[in-house]
Design a protein around this nucleic acid. Structure first.
Lengths: 158, 158
DNA sequence: GGAATTCCTACTAAATAACTAGGGATTAGG
DNA sequence: CCTAATCCCTAGTTATTTAGTAGGAATTCC
């Protein structure tokens, strides 16, 4: 799997927050329940997003989390990179210069790794959280609107 | 890293064989030396490619490996899928139907995983081993033509 | 004050990655 | 037929990562 549960859960949690953007802080417990993730594990995940400035928090009772910016201005790539680091197929196409391999100019396989990386980045950078919300509303489903009264088979981890 | 060393070494080895396609069996030792991979580890990798019918072998002295098909007809995707399995970002977009998640129709994140998978597949399926050989010759380098006499700094793992 | 919440650190079991080790089977060439 | 070169196969090993769990301290609303 290219993405670990961290990245996948992170995107789901971010989407959950995007759906409720502007409605005040959302308790982690609610997100975890709706997205079917264990509370303390999601806690760790969301802590990373917070440190990277993507999510903000309010402590104490009635507290919770919310997106730091408008969902239009946060991409899926922002979330994934925060949690997984850059999605490079190989070390030699990471963005930092320390990983420049010696034969970069000559390396034939490197050309391929670069193409893969570019195509992934194109996809994840082009999708904002707002796009996900729009998709969700367009599809017209409401499986997350029912607040806990019908979570019988929320087994989809995706 | 999206690709493990298996996939990366596999592509390098396959490229090495493509460069020498039609010249008879190439001993694994030579490939390992040129590509800077440990012999027994490369052995395991190439065994998988052989089982998947991408590479053939001749046993005994003067034996070795060669591509089962013309390099034009083997893609980088064939090699990678053989060694790494399908490059899916998440379970729910694997090709086999067992992994269909229950809420597939509704799952918003799934749309993203599908787009990522498609874009990766597009890239790796569109590049043949012959394309790599052509690239290599076009660039005009020859760092692998010197048969072992100058392998001082072959540290590029890429 | 008490309940709800975030915040933080440490631990752990299982899986995976990236090899290494050792030897058996096969074949070309002398 | 002998020997060296080579493929073939199984098993072990070490380190890292993954996917959590455990427990409690700090903060804030009511």
């Amino acid at each position: 799997m290219i993405l670990s549960t961290k990245g996948r859960y992170g995107v789901k949690a971010a989407f959950d927050l995007a759906l409720r953007f502007g409605e005040g802080p959302v308790p982690l417990k609610n997100i975890a329940e709706r997205q079917n993730i264990s509370d303390p594990y999601l806690e760790q995940i969301i802590a990373v997003l917070r440190k990277d400035g993507l999510v903000s928090s309010v402590r104490g009772a009635q507290g919770g989390y919310f997106l730091s910016k408008d969902p239009k201005r946060i991409t899926v790539g922002d979330i994934i990179r925060s949690l997984e680091g850059p999605l490079a197929p190989s070390e030699c196409v990471l963005d930092d210069q320390d990983n420049e391999c010696i034969r970069a100019d000559y390396c034939v396989t490197r050309i391929i790794w670069e193409k893969i990386k570019e195509s992934i980045d194109d996809v994840i950078n082009s999708i904002s959280l707002q796009d996900m919300v729009d998709d969700y509303k367009r599809i017209g489903n409401n499986y997350l609107d029912t607040k806990g009264e019908d979570n019988s088979d929320q087994t989809s981890i995706s």
